[in-house]
């Protein structure tokens, strides 16, 4: 099977996946005990049941669930993600406004993860079973085991409040300005820690394996400096296995963004999702879930393609 056909096939296969995600999410939102209208009128002393009925009709929430779902699908296919009921206007604008924030945070998390993981992994692999290896293993396990909300709170309390190295609130500068990048360090570290620890462990394992291979011995025998051997040969070959798990780590970062955005008050999609769930904003929940689902599907796809390029046998598995 050619690579192109493989990619095409995988792309097609992701359509039912996203369909499944949308059906499950839509169904679940409708199973919740209260809907958006309930939330809107529940604590307004002047709202009557008649007002609620009117709102439901206005939003189309009085229709049978399958009809509501079809309406939603029809909207999605025409690029209309529906309205944010408690506010009026459409979901699309809100998503576009919040998306860069979440992406910036995720990227920062990734940058941090790589900056720590690569040297850490090399260090551990070259000192396999020695003290440095054990220390880095301990550090990596700690990174995986520390709850990120706890880490974020602690970092903020120490570095932003006590030491005053960072502002507490984001500096309201453009995303790529120096002030903003400086501010993003703490949330980035918080969100990237787990990914970094995972990546470090994977790198260590695959590098250690790689270093036992014949070509490394041969390279060393040729008298190449150890540094060149490690970086040019071992690391490059090990990176491949690390890159292929990037999809999983990305899913982890997306998950983590929910909590980290809440802790740092960063107006991204994760924080928006919690708000949307609290208010039962169907269209908003759907849009965010679909976006995240699509992101994960794409990341998985990228990983599969990478695998397929590296190891053509894999294509037969799909």
């Amino acid at each position: 099977m050619s690579l192109r056909r493989f990619v095409l096939r995988r792309l097609l296969a992701s359509v039912p996946v996203l369909f499944g995600v949308s059906v499950i999410t839509f169904g679940m939102i409708h199973l919740t005990p209260a809907d958006i209208v309930d939330m809107m009128v529940a604590n307004n002393p002047d709202a009557t049941a008649a007002d609620a009925a009117n709102l439901r009709r206005e939003f189309g929430l009085h229709l049978p669930i399958w009809e509501q779902y079809l309406n939603w699908v029809a909207g999605m296919l025409t690029g209309d993600m529906g309205e944010v009921y408690s506010r009026g206007p459409d979901v699309g604008g809100m998503m576009i406004a919040r998306l860069p924030e979440t992406i910036a945070l995720g990227l920062f998390g990734w940058v941090f993860a790589i900056l720590i993981a690569v040297p850490g992994g090399i260090y551990a692999a070259t000192r396999k079973d020695r003290f440095g290896d054990h220390a880095s293993r301990f550090a990596a396990l700690s990174g995986i085991s520390i709850p990120n909300f706890w880490l974020g709170l602690m970092l903020m309390a120490i570095f932003a409040v006590e030491l005053n190295w960072f502002p507490v609130l984001d500096p309201q500068e453009p995303l790529l300005s120096r002030e903003m990048l400086w501010w993003l360090i703490l949330p980035g570290v918080t969100i990237g820690t787990a990914a970094s620890a995972n990546l470090m462990r994977i790198l260590r394992t695959s590098m250690a394996e790689e270093m036992n291979k014949d070509y490394v011995t041969a390279a060393r025998a040729k008298g190449l400096p150890e540094r060149t051997v490690i970086i040019k040969h071992v690391l490059r070959n090990s990176m491949i296995s690390a890159v292929t798990v990037a999809a999983f780590l990305t899913a982890g970062i997306v998950s983590g963004s929910v909590v980290v955005e809440v802790v740092f008050g960063w107006p991204g999609l994760g924080a928006l999702l919690i708000e949307a769930i609290n208010l039962r904003e169907i269209n908003l929940i759907m849009a965010i879930t679909m976006f995240v689902g699509a992101a994960i599907v794409v990341a998985n796809l990228a990983a599969d393609i990478m695998y397929a390029v590296l190891d053509p046998r894999i294509r037969d598995e799909y």
């Binding site: 502002p167 309201q172 008050g265």
Partner: peptide, 21 residues
């Protein structure tokens, strides 16, 4: 007047102490 959106009370306290608000 620059309105800052800070939903968490802990953050408001920190930002007030820090001089951000």
């Amino acid at each position: 007047i620059n309105i800052r959106f800070v939903p968490e009370s802990a953050q408001r306290a920190a930002a007030l102490e820090d001089g951000d608000i």
